[in-house]
Design a binder for these strands. Structure first.
Lengths: 336, 336
DNA sequence: GTGAAAGCGCTAACAA
DNA sequence: TTGTTAGCGCTTTCAC
């Protein structure tokens, strides 16, 4: 069996209290004793038992990260940023992938909480639930009673809940307004969920139309699965559908529209202009490369970790909301 | 503070041992007592303290997953498969992202081990180290003394180490042979690492050339960073380089070559044929869509979890190596 | 500056 | 079927 604190104490000729002090960097240890203990620890490769320590401190320096699907490029990128930062501060990450259904979100959250995580980070606006459906986020408020909860790219109001999100409304408003300015008349809106962020994007799209005196036409708003070929085929199947530009809430959807344009023989951006979202490799892997909204995910993630550290240190002045600005990466437009 | 086993025992009018039995589903409890205890637990929202349990059992049902970079599509997909399966068996995942440098791999591994994980899963062939550099994998063998180690898409020989990988040699051999059969003369090889799997891919490429009586030309083998524009620019910068087909070890590299072809005005696949690897969304998002090797990642992951469960149950007959066959997804070739 | 000892909440061996 | 009790390895208070 592994060597424990008693072994080290015995070999060093001190008590376990002193060993504990050395391990935890207490100043109340003479330099000589500290050296001796450190030596012994080195010698026998002592590693403190995290379970025992957890029992005493009620913490294992572990953060729960819950996401719907880690194979999603945007989410994976977020988790990468989070893990890097958390690791710097010696926190470990327990990762859960819940999918998009409420029940699974709830059970995953429970499972993470049962591990006595120090904080819970929810990645993706899907956790913000649907508008006017408070029951969608009940489990989050419940979780927040036990541990601070941090939401990335979403907003839930509540005690001990902290949210970082980006200005999706403005980004989509700007993209849509750009289309209008360039003379586009029939602007398609493509989205793949009814999440908090999708709502903001749609609101931005509609506001731009409204401000330009355009009608908001329901048949130009599509909800569809985020799979390239699926989007293409869905668009092709609507024979009478006409549009001269596309505002997509994800690059995958935009690529689907691009595929549609290819099949129809439409030139991008002259015949049809397409904008994506999330600024992923996909928007750069196609031809022509697509304009895409960069929502500064890294900043959202870093801010979140910073806030988390402050909350865990007892700081009571941490802002419950944090908005990051988006940036439109222009790659393909008729504008000059 | 939270309610503990003593509270439940008191409220139920039984001993903590009985409560423990109920919690752990022991059969040696009368139906009446069990009901009573369950009721009380429900009533006061009792959750066993995992740290205390961990201390006693020396396990928290937690699996360490280490990967170089979760924002890599292939790796993220692997982690998604792993997490799903592990969650089914009520294991939690601690995720670490180590990057590609040896030292960081070592410290990350140590950190995971210090959490007393039940098993360690290494995702990516980068952990298999370089050929003829046993020091690259010393820390893995060391880790395997403490906990079973599972490697995905790589191979390391050693006690308590179990590896799943795919037949990269054959896949690349077949892709290359296809090019040769279709009359390609100058086949470029593009890779982004010196990993175990990259070696196998290069070996397959070279074997195909050799078997066809072609020379193996060093100037046709490129090691480059896996960024689309970087690959394109790198290829463009080699003014005198000539090639009529590309074998890439990742879709990102293949897309880079595709961008190069676009700039040069070369038609794909007629003027130049390009094959990618990993069958990602990238290979489908471009135009034309690229042929790509599907290495059946899901099977590798599922097999790994199955083996892990068996090892943890004390099964001594678990195969130390597991090879999965690859499949070439033909999307773009002059072949008929 | 150091040590003794009381928990932390649970599991499991042993008694009853 | 149920209860008693001795750990599991560490942190921390209180003496010295």
């Amino acid at each position: 069996m592994a060597v424990n604190i008693y072994d080290v104490a015995k070999l060093s000729g001190v008590s376990i209290a002193t060993v504990s002090r050395v391990v935890n960097g207490s100043t109340k240890v003479s330099e000589k004793t500290r050296r001796k203990v450190l030596d012994v620890m080195e010698q026998c490769g002592y590693t403190p038992n995290v379970f025992a320590r957890g029992l005493g401190l009620d913490s294992m320096k572990t953060i729960g990260i819950l996401c719907p699907d880690i194979s999603d490029a945007f989410i994976a990128q977020a988790v990468a940023f989070l893990e890097e930062r958390l690791h710097q501060y010696e926190y470990d990450c327990i990762l859960g992938c819940s999918g998009y259904d409420l029940e699974a979100k709830e059970t995953h959250t429970k499972m993470l909480l049962s591990k006595r995580i120090d904080a819970l980070i929810l990645v993706s606006s899907t956790y913000a639930g649907r508008e006017r459906h408070p029951e969608d986020v009940e489990y989050i408020k419940e979780a927040a009673k036990q541990t601070p909860v941090f939401l990335i790219n979403g907003f839930v109001e509540g005690k001990n809940i902290y949210c970082s999100f980006c200005d999706d409304f403005k980004a989509t408003y700007d993209v849509t307004s750009g289309f209008i300015r360039r003379g586009k008349k029939k602007i398609l809106f493509l989205c793949d969920s009814y999440s908090y962020s999708a709502s903001k994007k749609m609101a931005g799209y509609e506001a731009a139309l409204r401000d330009a005196g355009y009608p908001i036409r329901g048949e130009l708003k599509f909800y569809t699965k985020n799979r390239i070929h699926h989007v293409r085929d869905m668009l092709l199947s609507h024979k009478n559908l006409e549009f001269d530009s596309v505002v997509a809430t994800d690059d995958g959807l935009a690529i689907g529209a691009l595929k549609y344009a290819n099949v129809k023989g439409l030139k991008v951006p002259d015949d049809i202009e397409i904008a994506g979202y999330n600024n992923s490799q996909l928007s750069v892997g196609c031809e022509p490369e697509l304009t895409s909204v960069d929502n500064h995910l890294e900043k959202m993630c870093n801010d979140t970790v910073d806030y988390m550290l402050r909350v865990l240190q007892g700081d009571t002045d941490v802002p419950p909301q944090n908005e990051v600005v988006c940036e439109i990466k222009k790659r393909c437009t008729t504008d000059f």
